[in-house]
Design a protein around this nucleic acid. Sequence first.
DNA 1: TCCATTACCTGAACCGGTTCAGTAACCCCG
DNA 2: CGGGGTTACTGAACCGGTTCAGGTAATGGA
Lengths: 339, 339
Amino acid sequence: MAKETIAGLAQRLGISKASVSYALNGQPGVSELTRRRVLDLADELGWYPSSSARALSRSRAGAVGMVLSADPLLIGTEPYYMGLLTGIETALAEGDMALMLRMVGRDPAQERATYERWAGERKVDGVILFDHRHADPRPALLERLRLPFVLHGAPAPEGVAPRSGTTTDHALDAATIVDHLHQAGHRRIAHVSGPRSFLHEEARIRGVQDRAGRHGISVVQYEADYSLDSGRDAALALLRGGEGISALVFGNDLMSMGGLLAMRAVGLRCPEDVALVSWDDSLHCELASPSVTALARNPGMQGRVAAELLLGLLDTGEVQTARMPAGDLVARSSTGALP
Amino acid sequence: MAKETIAGLAQRLGISKASVSYALNGQPGVSELTRRRVLDLADELGWYPSSSARALSRSRAGAVGMVLSADPLLIGTEPYYMGLLTGIETALAEGDMALMLRMVGRDPAQERATYERWAGERKVDGVILFDHRHADPRPALLERLRLPFVLHGAPAPEGVAPRSGTTTDHALDAATIVDHLHQAGHRRIAHVSGPRSFLHEEARIRGVQDRAGRHGISVVQYEADYSLDSGRDAALALLRGGEGISALVFGNDLMSMGGLLAMRAVGLRCPEDVALVSWDDSLHCELASPSVTALARNPGMQGRVAAELLLGLLDTGEVQTARMPAGDLVARSSTGALP
DNA sequence: TCCATTACCTGAACCGGTTCAGTAACCCCG
DNA sequence: CGGGGTTACTGAACCGGTTCAGGTAATGGA
């Protein structure tokens, strides 16, 4: 079983390399009979065309890259990423694209270096970006490098050249959460967000502020960093402040868990003393006691859509955006929704 | 900035392609001066050699593949995988190898097809395997495909041709857990394992049995499937059985959480009525109430070692095995270790 | 002084596909 | 029956690197 090549197949069948290639790729130029013979032989031999040879002659890598640039610790514990990844990979596989994964720390230079290398080596055909920041250097970098990309989960851009990507209506999600708290009778709440440098956090903050204002609810904004500890610290600061806050909204599930720990530490009961909502659902929310009311966002589906947008962009060059459906509020004990 | 090639560089410098190639790859055959000029120019242009061209002529893909074949749901919630992945990726990146990720369901045919394709297309130079099963078809398949691989986390094989991989002394870990429960005074315990088709579960079961026997502790073995629900069902069955079990050992953190839910459901307190140990640490164990005593295994480091073994295998063809350090028992409330 | 090394460099073949331009055979139709 | 069009196929160039087999020129030893 010496490694076969397309020349080998051609020789066995007594036809030219070109015909084999056409037959394999479903292109015109060969008769149905020849095509069948080629496909059957390839099948019989268990032969696949060399991906690097193909990549070289097609000038297409057949792979999509993704850089995870969060803290390793956060990546491993944040179920949202894994869900996203699963969705992305599934969609890519269906489009016959491989997923190349790279993990770097919070160091932007490394992420930048990775893109430069990927582009220079033509190792990936495109990349998926998320956690869009204010004045994010990545889109400009990628455009300079001519590396196609989609932007996942950013708020809909205003007055900017359109880019491929998924957009989320964070104001709508904010309204869902605030309305839920309003119905439960809360008049003063705190919103513990992730870093404000993220566009989506900015949008969420505005959304919460707006909706709360409409209900006559006052909001204390607090900036944290998505980690468990930062959530705990935030809760401690807010609840000790004696500001009469009766509900906390956390930007992700980890911080929500931190919030629960803080409440336990200072002897406040949930939901009786302070209610809690997580802006991301996960097993943590389900398992915590009390279980935590959360906005479920279906990361798997979002990843799938993002990947499909990228495939479309690579295939046809068509720039499109997809609006993600609104999150579903899963009411649990932490807002008194369940006994 | 039309895309540069090695021929372009050569022309600019007035030398041959061959010289440029030698200079770039640190090979003899060029003077130091020429080498510097080449490297400087490449740097200045931000040029990198095309990975597919390189892969084609070197017959080496420059990538390592990994198939995650668990339930999507389980993958996303099982922190062990993510930790492993992070470690693997980090080590691979240091060795200038890319990580190709593929997620398939529990369908073995898909995993098999992925390997066949990867091997045929020469898309990856090697793969990392884990969750070794009894009569696992994968090693034989990969050997037939001539695709190098390392086996992660299996028990040390007996009387089999040695293969590259990491081995874990599950008996030792079992002893750590059983000893801990023995010290706490338990005389009758249950061990809820993952599927027995996994070699490591078999080894764990034997390990628990042996060590318990030495202490005069009796063990009820129960086979589950790593899912939250299966953990819950196991606990319900075992605790309702009225067999006088005073401690439960679960094969992973998810099942442990299921166990806690079950105890809550039937009104048993932990650790007063039944103690609990998880054979895998994670944030879940830390956050649960009560917090769960767990055997921490440092998946990140394990992934790193596995990847390094594979790099060594690809580089020098050297088959080696690395024994993983014993797990650390993190004592928490679920065994009464903390107030 | 002369021959054998050695250091540096080059042309060309090669890796395994894709694709273009060209050819031969065939078909249809006026 | 002849000419335009289609179909099936082929040889060769090409993608962008690596590597081998030489070819000079400089160095060193006898």
